[in-house]
């Protein structure tokens, strides 16, 4: 007689385990004057060239942007306007970044 059902579920297992790669990509938004906003992308993986991403994003989203060198956070992409959804979609679909590694901040 087997008592297999006893070991089917471990109530003391760690919750939210999984692959705990905490290198999130943060996408933030900042308000400027009036209705204008600024989108920043922080923490891109090293193997992705921000220059190239920016170049494509500028063309694709019809917006301007720049790369800012931050002493702590490295290169940060800035884009004019609220491009949070667009840039995250872009990263998921064509840069092979998992959606769970992207954090979108702001309202």
């Amino acid at each position: 007689m087997s008592l297999e059902n006893l070991k089917s579920f471990d109530p003391f297992a760690e919750t939210d385990g999984g692959d705990d790669k905490k290198d999130y990509i943060h996408i933030r938004i900042q308000q400027r004057n009036g209705r204008k906003t600024l989108t920043t992308v922080q923490g891109l993986p090293k193997e992705i060239d921000p220059k190239r991403v920016l170049k494509f994003a500028k063309k694709e989203f019809a917006t301007n942007g720049s790369i800012v060198e931050d002493p702590d956070l490295g290169e940060v992409i800035q884009l004019q306007g609220d491009q949070r959804q667009k840039i995250s979609e872009l990263m998921v679909s064509s840069m092979g970044i998992k959606k769970s590694n992207i954090k979108i901040h702001g309202f």
């Binding site: 193997e47 992705i48 694709e60 872009l90 064509s94 092979g96």
Partner: peptide, 14 residues
């Protein structure tokens, strides 16, 4: 450039 090919992207990165 509108074709943001992922393969091109990744390989040509470095």
């Amino acid at each position: 450039p509108a074709t943001f090919d992922p393969s091109a992207m990744k390989k040509k990165k470095k």
